[in-house]
Amino acid sequence: MKEKFLGVDVSNFTYDQLKENIITDIDENRKSFIVAINPEKILQAQRDESLLYLLNQATYQIPDGVGILIASRLNGGTIRERVTGIDMLLALCEQASLHDKSVFLYGAKPGVADEAKDRLREMYPELRIAGVLDGYVKDYEYIKETINEAKPDIIFVALGSPRQEHWIVDHMDELDVKVFQGVGGSFDVLSGKVKRAPGAFQKVGLEWLYRLIKEPWRIKRQIKLPTFLVKVWKSRK
């Protein structure tokens, strides 16, 4: 169940379908990889074949961006629900707490993942957090050993994109983990280091506008949306 935009696959599952599928993946001992897709990432993949290949390697490419929803309508597709990276993380933590699965937090600056862990424990008291490791540890053998000893069902990797996706693809076969998700700056948001857009902005898919108001320098990134939509329109068959 995927749609394709400028060569990049995007899954058209809803949150509920994703949650069910991922718990089933864990129970049936299947490895899966979740990557968030937005217009900026798709445009970047037009110039970088290795990134294009990397994104299409994922099991689930979640539509993280209102531009993907618009593009789906332009193509006559069925993607109607935006699935953000941080909301997917929270949905998986909720499911993990309900189904007795464990999670591991890897990445971000020292201390940030620990603060994110504390916040997740407040939100989901029954959640099993198997371990935490910051993204500044350089010894891969130590990283691998720490994760494999913890044996988490789900690992959230916060190394920035596309570095985190490259890390997942390069190492997922060596790690005793079932579900891998690259989560960008989600630990910073959970820890309170970065403020997320108010719920009203989230509900109507205007988090980008809130971020633009708070950080005007983002205009260089935001103006890529019209470029993306024009390219999608021209590529229609």
Rank of each mutant, 00 (worst) to 15 (best):
L51E: 03
L98C: 11
S186W: 06
E215G: 07
P162C: 09
R121G: 05
H99E: 10
R218W: 00
A36N: 13
K2T: 11
A96Q: 07
V137G: 00
K231T: 07
Q164W: 11
I86A: 01
G85M: 07
K220T: 13
D176A: 07
A130T: 06
I154Q: 01
I70V: 12
K2I: 10
N21W: 02
T227S: 10
A96S: 12
K31N: 04
P39N: 02
F201L: 11
D27V: 04
V169G: 00
N12S: 07
K31H: 03
I147T: 07
R119M: 13
L74Y: 02
E20Q: 13
K195H: 13
L133N: 02
E28A: 08
I213C: 12
V103M: 10
D16E: 15
E141W: 04
V35Y: 04
F180R: 05
E149D: 14
L51D: 01
K31M: 03
K224S: 10
K151M: 12
Y53L: 13
F187M: 06
I86S: 02
N29V: 10
S235K: 14
V157C: 08
I37E: 00
Y136T: 14
K214G: 14
R211T: 09
T146Y: 03
L51W: 03
L127R: 04
R128F: 06
E40S: 09
V183K: 02
R163H: 14
D176W: 08
R218P: 04
E40I: 14
V189Y: 09
W208C: 03
E28S: 14
M172K: 13
V194I: 14
V157M: 01
R163V: 14
N21Q: 14
F201C: 08
D188M: 04
E149A: 14
V232L: 04
A200T: 15
D173I: 06
V66S: 08
E115W: 09
L229A: 01
I129S: 08
F180V: 05
L18D: 00
R121Q: 14
V183D: 01
L90H: 04
G131A: 09
